[in-house]
């Protein structure tokens, strides 16, 4: 039931991209996304696709790894494209009775699709080559200056990291409770709406209860280990930028600059 949830999992590999600092990858990814939006059709977008191809090569991922992320968005892309084709006015390219598709509509639809695909590609590239924890670590260090403005950066990141850690456990727990209730005759699929709802509650309430209990237990365990929030806390692993990080950042910045200036 929960097996098909895909959160853009990390795909371990020994590639150049995998070894870069998470901060580099996040910022470079932002540069790339900005470049995607600034790029004009068709020549500039073509060059960005070339750059994307190079990144794919550097990441050692396969095209098939990206498919699960694209799949849910296909329908959105399709609907948007149909609307754009039908409703964007301009020089008619061809008409069929009352339907008329303009040259501008085709250009907009193609550009939109190309950009959307690139966008998904970059996000997937980031999540496939960087562990969630590394991403969070990077985010924490980048957002750290905001602490001076009173934003609880460390606490927010800690909440997100722990949530990530508990997702598999939560799924396991949900599955266990569901099976326990099935054993006791509950059925979540057949029966009237009211009886199904009732059964659903018999599933959700214990799940909520056990999650709250876990949260309480964990907070106690953290406090017992002298956790007092981010103040005065140090880190075991400190992120360090290396030569490769600078090279990657610079090339992405150059790509963005080229798109903006040309």
């Amino acid at each position: 039931m929960f097996r098909n949830i895909s959160l853009g999992q990390y795909l371990p590999a020994d590639s150049i991209l995998h070894h870069l600092d998470p901060r580099t990858k996040t910022v470079a990814g932002l540069f790339f996304i900005l470049a995607v939006f600034a790029a004009a059709f068709p020549l500039e977008l073509f060059f960005i696709y070339l750059a994307g191809g190079l990144l794919l090569y550097l990441s050692r991922l396969r095209m098939i790894d990206f498919w699960p992320v694209f799949k849910p968005f296909l329908i959105i892309i399709l609907i948007t494209v149909i609307f754009q084709l039908l409703f964007i006015p301009g020089t008619p390219l061809f008409s069929f009775s009352i339907l008329s598709i303009s040259y501008e509509a085709v250009e907009t639809a193609v550009t939109f699709t190309l950009r959307f695909v690139l966008l998904l590609f970059v996000v997937r590239l980031l999540t496939a080559t960087t562990t969630p924890v590394a991403l969070m670590d990077g985010l924490e260090q980048m957002l750290n200056p905001l602490r001076k403005l009173g934003l609880a950066v460390h606490e927010l990141i800690m909440i997100m990291t722990i949530s990530l850690r508990f997702i598999p456990m939560f799924i396991e727990e949900a599955e266990r409770i569901r099976k326990a209730q099935l054993c006791r005759g509950a059925d979540f699929r057949i029966g009237s709406l009211s009886s199904r709802l009732k059964n659903l509650f018999a599933w959700l309430l214990p799940l909520l209860r056990s999650s709250l209990q876990r949260a309480e237990d964990l907070s106690q365990a953290m406090e017992a280990r002298a956790y007092q929030g981010g103040e005065g806390r140090t880190r075991l692993n400190i992120l360090r930028l290396r030569g490769g990080d600078y090279a990657y950042l610079l090339s992405m910045a150059a790509l963005l600059a080229a798109v903006l200036l040309v």
Partner: peptide
Amino acid sequence: EEVAFGPENLGLEP
């Protein structure tokens, strides 16, 4: 990271 959590809270050097 698990084992480091306590010492990190104590503010020790990496």
